[in-house]
Design a protein around this nucleic acid. Structure first.
Lengths: 342, 342
DNA sequence: GTTTAGCAGTCATTAATAAGGAGTGCTAAA
DNA sequence: TTTAGCACTCCTTATTAATGACTGCTAAAC
């Protein structure tokens, strides 16, 4: 473990670098922060910190910058969380003062996450595994073509167009619908999906219809957890010094556009059940080695249904961002419950 | 009008610049293309073309590049359209060999547009103004909270969660639904919207429900034409020489992320009813002054319902791209009809 | 033992200069 | 009307030199 002086030096080194974006030199540290040690002493300590892997020297005659490990130590032990500034509180209140549909709400959360931070905001779609199937409707669009509509307990509606191989009568569709609802309504989606996979379906239902339902559930349960996200503020990353280099932007952008990668990051945050920070290579994606990700979860009626987060340069004000993301998770949960509760 | 020699020189100047990305000099033109005129002669002609606004000289001792006007003349009068290469045909067939839902289809079209061109592909959502309302369903999610689900004749389903101010009984919801369907089913969405605006609604329908329907229609008819698009391949633009400069990328990206701008460009293509090319400043957006946009429309059952297109650097192979976009419009129309027709 | 002043050495950054090359416009002759 | 020739312009690249910011190390001071 680091002794007190080393911790102090690491702390202000990280803080100063986050502030200034310049490698921090012993001279600056001694002069600017009145530590009471000479630059030479600090130099020795910094050399030790480098040896221990907390700091990095970009080149021989440069100051030092934090390594992933240095940031990690700072985040875990050295920083003081900041409360949300009044300004942000007001901005959030203002942004969510109008009632929104759930999709627009998620989108707006991503947007606000980005606007207040100039980073990229992301929100994972609600995961429906533990949602209930509320009802199934069948609507005839034209002869032989129907639309199967599924409503879930979270208010998410999914639909699929199905072609029938024979001409259907209206009363017939009605009875099929009744049968389906009788068998499946108010069961968990996951359960319904299993029942379908095991072919435990009511009799006399046309093959096309229960296949359609099965595919719809597959999309909702399997595919969306991999792909369903809102992203906002990609173009804001140009504001940051670390993304003035075309190649870095290129790398970052190709990852952000490949939504699957991001979705799976958020999905593991969702499984994690709490506030998470990943710094640089901890993310496990080489293109994001200059970035950090802060994620948290959101819930509806005490059950966690999704995740949200923020991607920015490693050199970010963690003490603020952490609070901000946490609050946004709470706000989203609250607003969602407002949509669904009286 | 330009005489034959000037046209010939303009033609190969544009072609050569598109190919090489280098300002074209009189010497190269004379040597590479065996025109039978000396560099000096060509120089004189090029000077005339510059004076007439078809060519631009980046600086005194450089060759010439086409101006917007030069590209325009080339596109309108000088180029020979190329048929779609076999390779592209196969790629398209392969990409659309699996059946897809209409959303995935649109997304895939945007993706293919981008993949085969390394440009940005865009597809406008189907415009529902002339679609019919097929049915309205009401599903109770919990006490006092219902979901209103509207199906349209194009198979698009839209829903909205509505809170009721009083406790509703199931049979009551059923009768409301029947009334709504009786009044509105099989009418054009636009007409239904007008009826609602004029408060020509059946009696004894709770205020919240018809307000919900009105808002839903507003979203579909007004908002989506401004916002609903699929974009694909943003990160591919880095492959092009013109986007190696961080500031250009920044500009382009901020426009692309602001989906409204793009959607309204596509929307006017939709109103245009055909294949459109906009070159550089013709687009009317300063950030896109180095880009060109090619758009066309797609249809379902003989009525035009949307638009699609491609954004790339001005220096693109128009003879190919035009064909490609045109074909993609046809493919999308075909595949859409496959979803809806037998 | 710990701290510090002093100094040599390293490396990035910037500016200045020079050399080379590509291409034009103009003139005068063919 | 076309073309050869030449002076001129401007971009690009390489080289060099000067500057400045830090560090690591050593030896002296506390």
């Amino acid at each position: 473990m680091l002794d007190e002086r080393k911790q102090k030096i690491l702390r202000i080194t990280v803080k100063d670098y986050i502030e200034s974006a310049q490698p921090v030199s012993s001279r600056v540290l001694a002069k600017k922060y009145h530590l009471g040690w000479s630059p030479a002493t600090i130099r020795n300590e910094m050399a030790d910190l480098e040896e221990a892997g907390y700091l990095i020297q970009p080149h021989t005659s440069a100051g030092r910058i934090p390594s992933d490990r240095g940031y990690r130590f700072y985040v875990d032990f050295l920083m003081d969380l900041e409360p949300l500034p009044q300004e942000d509180i007001e901005y959030i209140n203002y942004s969510f003062s109008c009632p929104l549909s759930w999709e627009n709400l998620l989108e707006q959360v991503a947007e606000v996450l980005s606007q207040r931070t100039s980073f990229v905001g992301v929100v994972l779609f609600p995961q429906l595994n533990s949602a209930f199937l509320k009802s199934i409707e069948l609507v005839e669009l034209r002869e032989n073509v129907i639309s199967l509509i599924m409503t879930t307990s979270t208010g998410v509606v999914k639909e699929r167009i199905i072609k029938l191989s024979y001409s259907s009568q209206e009363f017939e569709l009605y009875s099929i619908k009744e049968k389906l609802n009788k068998s499946f309504a108010n069961k968990e989606l996951q359960e319904v999906y299993w029942l379908l996979l095991q072919k435990k379906v009511p009799k006399n239902i046309p093959l096309e219809i229960y296949q359609g339902l099965e595919q719809l559930l597959w999309e909702v349960l399997e595919k969306e957890k991999e792909e369903g996200i809102f992203i906002a503020g990609i173009s804001r990353i140009f504001k940051h010094l670390e993304f003035q280099d075309i190649n870095k932007v290129k790398d970052l952008l190709s990852v952000l556009e490949e939504e699957k990668t991001l979705a799976s990051l958020l999905f593991s945050a969702f499984l994690n059940h709490g506030l998470t920070i990943l710094i640089g290579n901890e993310i496990g994606i080489s293109e994001l080695s200059d970035c950090s990700i802060i994620t948290t979860i959101y819930s509806l009626r005490d059950s966690i249904i999704g995740a949200l987060g923020m991607i920015g340069p490693k050199r970010m004000k963690y003490e603020r961002m952490l609070t901000f993301v946490e609050v946004m998770g709470k706000v989203l949960s609250e607003k969602l419950s407002e949509i669904f509760e009286k």
